[in-house]
Amino acid sequence: MATDELVKTTGIAQHGAERLPSVDVDSFNIEIKDEDGFLGDRASKGAFREVLERWRKPLRKTGEDPFGKVPTEEINKKTLDAILVGDDTEASAVVHSAIEDFSQELAYVTRRFLKTKAWAKTERIVVGGGFRDSRLGELVIARAEIILKSEDFKIDLQPIRHHPDEAGLIGALHLAPSWIFEAHDSILAVDIGGTNIRCGVVETSWKKAKDLSKAKVVHSDLWRHADDEPTREGAVKRLTKMLKGLITEAENEGYKLAPFIGIACPGVINPDGSIEKGAQNLPGNWESSKFNLPASLLEGIPQIGEHDTAILMHNDGVVQGLSEVPFMQDIDRWGVLTIGTGLGNARFTNRRKESGKEKDRDSTENGKKKSKND
């Protein structure tokens, strides 16, 4: 059955679906290359550290490095944020220099995305990922937006609203069909990353806001799997245990948990739930044709309450972006970039519009302003 037909008849999309209840996923996990390699590598957390190191290097030679002998990789976001508002002008100048260079890189990468067919006519981009969760990240996003607008791109860049750790869980609500929310007030969500696996109970707050704008994470559990280096099977076993614990917790507190688990996972997700590529940072070989995470979880959690469990898995960048659906109803086309170990990306077109808010669909092209003579 085609994805469109599946959504129309049951409301449950396929894994990695192009059509979801509220949006069409125009593209995700695009891998663009330039002469230096993958474009996303120029706008990752590691890339920022390389930029910072470049600014420290000449100062280190003269013994004037304000960071002293501390390795760049050990300087965290909290330290850099404190320097930005602190009294050490030299250290602040180094960080601001790195911000400017990295903003130029982010603007360059964004520009390349906007020129692809899949990202044509994008009106707004939200930026998530761990890097966004800092004053440093907010300045980079704001500066990149200014650079793009100075080049006559009609595009808004803004930080993702929810904390990045919660956005990947809240976004899972938008994988589920709306009829689920009529009888249930919460779902289980999983956000899988190269370092951590986070699970949560997400309360829909559907009675307060049917667009899910009031949704919130009420319980969560975090496992830093990179420290334990588990096998693939060990990771699935631990994840199943975490979810069962959350089910018990939710039931004990009186939540009406839906028989639905939404999963955000790195990589290209196939309709059958297997992972085509992009899962190289996960424990074990998750790209094996013999491995299927949704099927493995169904074996461990066949039912939630009295109903059979339904599971839908999608790319982690897509799911994090979906947390913004309620706040994107004033436009048609929008995207998400997630700055982390790599650069996650997805582009969406809204399927549902509020009455009276339709925009001129031809007012922008490739994210650039159209002149009156066009």
Rank of each mutant, 00 (worst) to 15 (best):
L222E: 11
H225S: 12
A226S: 07
D227L: 12
E229Y: 03
P230N: 05
T231M: 02
E233P: 00
G234I: 03
A235H: 06
A235M: 06
L239Y: 03
M242D: 00
L243G: 00
L243P: 02
L243D: 03
K244R: 15
L246F: 04
I247Q: 12
I247K: 11
I247L: 11
T248D: 14
E249N: 15
E251I: 13
N252A: 14
G254A: 07
Y255N: 09
Y255M: 12
P259K: 06
F260V: 06
G262K: 04
I263T: 09
A264E: 11
C265E: 12
G267L: 11
G267C: 11
G267T: 10
V268K: 15
V268C: 13
N270A: 13
P271S: 08
D272H: 05
D272A: 01
K277L: 14
K277P: 02
G278V: 14
A279Y: 05
A279Q: 01
Q280R: 15
Q280C: 12
N281D: 14
N281Q: 14
N281I: 10
L282N: 10
P283V: 07
P283Y: 03
G284W: 01
N285C: 02
S288C: 04
S289M: 01
S289T: 08
S289Q: 02
K290D: 08
N292E: 02
N292P: 05
L293Y: 00
P294Q: 06
S296F: 01
S296K: 04
S296D: 08
L297P: 01
L297T: 05
L297H: 04
L298T: 14
G300N: 08
I301V: 15
I301N: 12
P302F: 13
Q303L: 14
I304G: 07
G305E: 02
E306V: 13
D308L: 15
D308M: 13
I311G: 03
H314E: 12
H314V: 04
N315P: 02
N315C: 04
D316R: 04
G317A: 14
L322P: 02
E324F: 06
E324L: 11
V325P: 04
V325T: 08
F327S: 14
M328N: 04
M328E: 07
M328W: 06
M328R: 15
Q329E: 15
Q329V: 08
D330H: 13
D330Y: 02
I331C: 05
I331H: 00
R333H: 05
W334N: 02
W334M: 06
L337H: 08
T338K: 05
T338E: 07
T338W: 01
I339K: 11
G340E: 00
T341W: 07
G342D: 00
G342I: 06
G344L: 05
G344D: 09
N345Y: 05
A346I: 05
F348E: 08
N350H: 14
S355M: 10
